[in-house]
Amino acid sequence: MTPQPPRGLRDYVAILYPAFMLGVFFVVPFAIMIAVSFFRRNELTFYEPAFVLSNYARLFTTFFGKSFVFSILLSALVGVLVVIVAFPFTYLLTRLRRRTQVFYLVFILSVLSLSEVIIGFTWSTLLSATAGISNLLVFMGLLDQPQAWTPSLTALVVGLSYLGFPYTVLVLYPALSRLDPELPEASRMLGASPLRTFFLVVIPVMRSSIISALIMVFVFNLGAYVLPQVLGRPEHWTLSVLITDQAIFQSNMPFAAAMAIVLMVLSLMLVAVTLVLGQERSSQR
């Protein structure tokens, strides 16, 4: 059956509804944001209509530039770390018995119900000197005295990875559970150990799923603004934190809008480059 072009009012109503929702909740706000990013700041009314490029020009200062590069690198690092941990985990999960799989998945889903704020403060307690894991290590005789591991870059990476892990498992799970179990078995019959099979067959066959999981965690982390403030030092504040700071505390809406747009455009470009690279490699083969 070939799809037919829509005919008559009834066919178009089905398209109108999603188009309307997309317009009201995405296109219009986004257009407002673009417009505001060119406005001039005004102490009394927040901003006044104008067409100035100074908001964008300010992004090219060292402070914001550094923060920008840091945000991208942090998100990429966490993305890679989470996928490295979550992919073998999900692969082993799909090899388990059905009932055991459901148990694990329910547990992972329940972690998703925790808010980012709760997760942030829980980790900051766990890594603190007063009530954290280091006290346990002192008790076991592995450390001389309790240490504070937060705020630090490590604490921030740990927190973000914890947050991204369940989402990554849920993205990888359907693809990995559809993987034909005979593929790794065929590799084993040809003399490859389970570990070599994992690297030579499972990972290459699942490459596109791995890339989409990477992109998802990366984009997800770019938007994080609670954890950097709770677990990181001020120099670890991501661009999202600065956007929130400008928009809410500095009341500089035009500059916040300009930062948000640049962040979004550049991250979309990075995602596009990743996708193109991924496709080129697969069409070569």
């Binding site: 034909d180 065929a186 290459p204 066959v205 697969s282 083969r285």
Partner: peptide, 9 residues
Amino acid sequence: FQSLALFPH
């Protein structure tokens, strides 16, 4: 194998 299990990559 029954599914042949040829490596698609």
